[in-house]
Computed example of a mutant assay.
Amino acid sequence: MAPTRAPSRPDRLRREAERAASRFPALLAEAERIASSVALGAHGRRQAGSGETFWEYRRHRAEDGARAVDWRRSARGDHLFVRETEWEAANAIYLWRDGSPGMSAGSAGLPTKQDRGAVCLMAAASLLVRGGERVAALGETGRARGGRAGLEITARALADGPGSVSSVEAPDLPRHARLVLASDFLDPPETWAQRLSALAASGARGVLLRLVDPSEEAFPFQGRTRFETAGGGDTLLFGKAESAREGYARLWAEHGEALRDLARRAGWRLITHRTDRPAGAAVMALYQALDPERS
């Protein structure tokens, strides 16, 4: 019997990409179903226009194309610039879904935090686009776009993109942009305080969507249990896991309170969503939080 040859790296990467891409249609279909349901209970949103009031100049990006260049401003220096209007700056919403290893965790029978975060953001994006606004996946899709094309570009990045934390730490944003950051926010609150401080320096504001798997909150483990760090690495072995429940509950509550205080001081809205609960409630809360009439 001839030995089986291991697949080459290109073949392996192609198969991984195909597996990842196969999730996109299902996630988008779920998001659109949720968006349609939420839209029935949401109040009407004012239709946005293209706007003519000058807002600011920003560096030209490759995806802007030659027609967007403001040649008069660009002629003053060595860089190309784009002239943004007030509506373009104020009505672009940037969405980020954390792609850290821990986001792939999920209790049996429930979606992972990563997939639930993607669905919530995709559904919110669908509602926003229907209202005439423009959306983008922070750090992954360039400028914000409207219409069906803008939704699909953003949704695919939210479903399959890396969700790198560097997109939050060093964003390329217009001033006063609105953002939604979806994560479990399990990094130390001090770390998130630094990230939000950097965003606040550009006038950015928005919503933190905190995703929680029910086992993280309830700590239902009993007996001999081994806990592994997400993505591999350190492990922790308990002979009787239930003996740690009380201390864990205290630390969990303290972490949640620290996040609430952080969001309050930064002027952001914190929405906490458990993956064993309907996504529609989280989407409605997101949509309402992003309404400029409520901000």
Rank of each mutant, 00 (worst) to 15 (best):
P188A: 12
S104P: 00
V212Y: 08
R210H: 12
L158I: 13
E242D: 08
R12I: 10
E88I: 07
R143T: 07
Q194N: 07
A285E: 07
L209F: 11
M122N: 01
A201E: 12
R59G: 03
W55T: 00
V165T: 11
G102Y: 00
S50W: 06
L127S: 05
G256Q: 14
G150V: 12
G139F: 11
V180L: 09
Q222Y: 06
T141D: 04
R23G: 10
A253K: 05
E217V: 00
A285C: 07
L128H: 00
V207R: 06
R260A: 14
E254I: 05
W71F: 15
G131W: 07
S166Y: 10
P188N: 03
H79D: 02
G147T: 03
G41T: 14
M1V: 13
A89T: 14
A258D: 06
A105W: 14
R148Y: 13
V38R: 01
L40D: 03
A193G: 10
A26H: 14
T229A: 13
A123E: 09
L209V: 07
H43K: 03
L236A: 08
L211V: 13
L40W: 08
S22R: 08
E216Y: 11
L173T: 02
E32S: 02
M284D: 13
W87A: 06
R143E: 14
R72D: 07
A263N: 05
R195P: 00
L138C: 01
G256E: 10
F81Y: 15
A285I: 06
A249V: 02
D187W: 15
V207G: 01
K113E: 00
R97E: 09
S166C: 06
R277E: 15
D64T: 00
D187K: 08
R61N: 00
A157Q: 05
L128Y: 02
A285L: 09
L186E: 12
F219H: 09
G146A: 13
S100L: 05
E84F: 12
H176S: 09
G163T: 02
A105C: 09
H176E: 10
R265S: 08
L262R: 02
R134W: 04
N91E: 15
D172M: 02
G247F: 11
P101L: 13
E216F: 09
S197M: 11
R83C: 03
E246H: 03
W55V: 00
A279P: 05
A149I: 13
T235I: 14
A241Y: 02
A124W: 04
R46T: 15
E257W: 05
R134K: 11
A244V: 06
A157K: 01
L110W: 04
W192R: 04
W192V: 02
T191V: 15
P278I: 15
A149Y: 14
L237A: 09
E190M: 06
I271R: 04
G109P: 08
S215E: 15
Q47A: 11
A263L: 15
L158N: 07
L179I: 15
R245K: 10
D160I: 14
G150R: 13
A118D: 01
A2N: 07
E257C: 00
W268C: 04
V168I: 15
L128T: 03
L138S: 05
S74W: 03
E217F: 11
A159G: 09
R12V: 06
P111C: 04
G102R: 01
D213K: 10
H43Q: 08
D172S: 11
S215H: 15
V180M: 06
R264I: 07
H79I: 03
